[in-house]
């Protein structure tokens, strides 16, 4: 499903003309199969977000390749990248990234609007999904009227609404308390089992990584395989 091969990337830091090149990814290689949950652990600045951004097509790698469902993503043009993301990826962000002017229902509906789905069909689909993630009662609420856990559920629903086979989660519980964190992790696990979705989770939290089928740790720009755990 996902094949990352020899990915390299570096950042420039310092003032212009006096920059320093800091390598963040030094030939990362990883394969993720269909229906797997893979967690990438790492400290702040370890390059785990860079890996996710390259995987999502938000940026291009300096070397190496990313194949998603048999498609080399780096060769796609910007507009093709957008279409590819819409069809293949759902995103869960640390700070939810919901549209403040849209209700929970409308936030979940947004990717379907971008897809151009007709109103009746998408209303039905959003309604069903909101019920599935336990948000039907707050569907009309705006993000500032929702708790952190509810906002993240909206974010998860938005990631799932297009039936994209892969969900990329960047610190999905980073803004939540420990109780809500457990709820969200259970939800991720259950969605993975029920729907067979593939999750790639970027986190610095061992407990969050524990939900994964496989764990990797990014250390000094290299990916090190961690132990396999199944318990949450």
């Amino acid at each position: 499903m996902i094949k990352i091969n020899g990915l390299q990337h570096h950042f420039k830091i310092g003032k212009k003309g006096n920059e320093r090149h800091v390598p963040v990814l030094k030939g990362v290689t990883l394969e993720v199969g269909k229906g797997e949950i893979v967690a990438i652990l790492g400290k702040s600045g370890s390059g785990k977000s860079t890996l996710l951004h390259i995987l999502a097509g938000f940026m291009s790698p300096e070397a190496g390749s990313v194949m998603v469902n048999g498609q080399e993503t780096a060769v796609l043009r910007e507009s093709e990248q957008a279409s590819f993301r819409l069809a293949n990826f759902g995103f869960i962000f640390q700070n939810f990234q919901l549209m403040p002017g849209l209700s929970a229902f409308e936030n979940v509906e947004l990717p379907l609007k971008i897809q151009g789905m007709n109103e009746a069909e998408r209303k039905m689909k959003v309604q069903k999904l909101l019920e599935k993630v336990g948000l039907e009662e707050v569907a009309g609420h705006y993000p500032n009227e929702l708790s952190g856990g509810q906002q993240q559920r909206v974010s998860i629903a938005r990631a799932l609404i297009t039936d994209a086979p892969i969900v990329l989660a960047d610190e999905p519980t980073g803004s939540l308390d420990s109780e809500t964190e457990k709820e969200i992790l259970l939800l991720i696990k259950s969605l993975n089992k029920k729907l067979g979705l593939t999750f790639v989770i970027i986190t610095h939290d061992e407990e969050v990584a524990a939900v994964a089928d496989r764990q990797y740790r990014l250390h000094d720009g290299e990916l090190v395989k961690g132990e396999q755990r199944y318990a949450v």
């Binding site: 069809a87 990826f89 938005r158």
Partner: peptide, 16 residues
């Protein structure tokens, strides 16, 4: 800017 970024991230075309 943030909203535009989210829209682009979830698959909105630049021309849209």
């Amino acid at each position: 800017t943030r909203e535009i970024g989210v829209m682009k991230a979830i698959g909105a075309q630049p021309k849209l």
